[in-house]
């Protein structure tokens, strides 16, 4: 029974090694990851009659409001795409990004109760939230697909569309998730002690949506504004997502690469800060 290994398997020191992301430990806790996804998911919809159908209802209402506001009143162009589809797709992809960012940015403050009692790799919690967000996205996306197919078969809508461009969908999701998660854990690590940033982030996210081609296409943006807009790493994944679905949208390979590099930088900085913060955050949270 006795182990013959004469080495210490756990060493507690004042500081974490910043570049040691403890992936092996994370892997050991993979069961917790899935159970926690289930807990979040089931917990949210128990005792509601409509359950996950609520994922349909809120985007439908948002889409209708957007159609009225941006389509009918502001008369923004949708590049020839049916208004409902255009806004619905935009809402789905933006909700996904916002969800990834939101759950990661609250990783420490929202889970302080559990983190204060038991040790496990802290990254499990924001990862689980990200998976939950992905599930929500698929539910919302299935609504979109239903209406998409209805428009094609019954309303004669013909999207310009190639099978290969469908690959942009997972790529966009991946990059958006990466940026949202990376930026989110940066925010959560910084806000354990000083909460000022949470205030900024609250309305910053709303403003960021307007700086991203969610409710409009990049094609209608005047060039003198566009040159600044392109610094937003969210532009390429959102535009390519629309391109995959509707065949409209402007982006270049360079822009995609720029987004991917941004994602990696965010993730890297985020993991380092998170690693640094997780050790002692309970003392200041």
């Amino acid at each position: 029974m006795q182990s013959t290994v004469e080495e210490w398997n756990i060493i507690i020191k004042p500081k974490n090694n910043l570049l040691d992301f403890k992936l092996k430990e994370l892997h050991n806790y993979r069961d917790l990851l899935w159970l926690w996804v289930r807990r979040e998911y089931v917990g949210a919809y128990k005792q509601t009659l409509l359950g996950p159908l609520w994922h349909f209802i809120s985007p439908i209402f948002s889409t209708l409001i957007y159609m009225l506001l941006y389509g009918k009143i502001a008369k923004l162009s949708t590049d020839g795409v049916p208004m409902f589809l255009f806004y619905n797709a935009g809402i789905a992809i933006w909700n996904f990004f916002n969800g990834c960012f939101g759950s990661a940015s609250g990783a420490f403050t929202n889970n302080a109760g559990i983190f204060g009692k038991v040790y496990f790799p802290r990254l499990i919690m924001p990862l689980a939230s990200m998976i939950t967000t992905l599930i929500k996205f698929f539910i919302q996306f299935s609504l979109f697909l239903l209406i998409y197919l209805y428009m094609i078969f019954f309303k004669g809508y013909q999207p310009i569309f190639s099978i290969w461009s469908l690959l942009y969908i997972p790529l966009s999701l991946f990059i958006l998730a990466g940026i949202g998660f990376g930026f989110g854990i940066i925010v959560s690590s910084i806000t354990t002690k000083y909460r000022d940033l949470t205030q900024l982030v609250g309305f910053g996210m709303q403003l960021l949506m307007f700086a991203t081609p969610v409710i409009y296409g990049l094609s209608i943006v005047p060039p003198e504004i566009k040159q600044y807009l392109l610094f937003n790493p969210l532009v390429a994944p959102v535009e390519s997502f629309k391109y995959a679905l509707f065949g409209v949208g402007e982006f270049t390979l360079n822009l995609q690469l720029y987004s991917a590099v941004c994602m990696m930088i965010f993730l890297f900085i985020g993991l380092i800060l998170f690693n640094n913060a997780e050790k002692n955050f309970m003392d200041s949270v």
């Binding site: 080495e7 060493i11 507690i12 040790y119």
Partner: peptide, 19 residues
């Protein structure tokens, strides 16, 4: 206890555990 159970870190020193 908190330091031993790794919910917070020590300011100085180290703890080694086996198993």
């Amino acid at each position: 206890l908190k330091i031993l159970s790794r919910t917070t870190g020590p300011t100085t020193g180290s703890i080694k555990m086996k198993g």
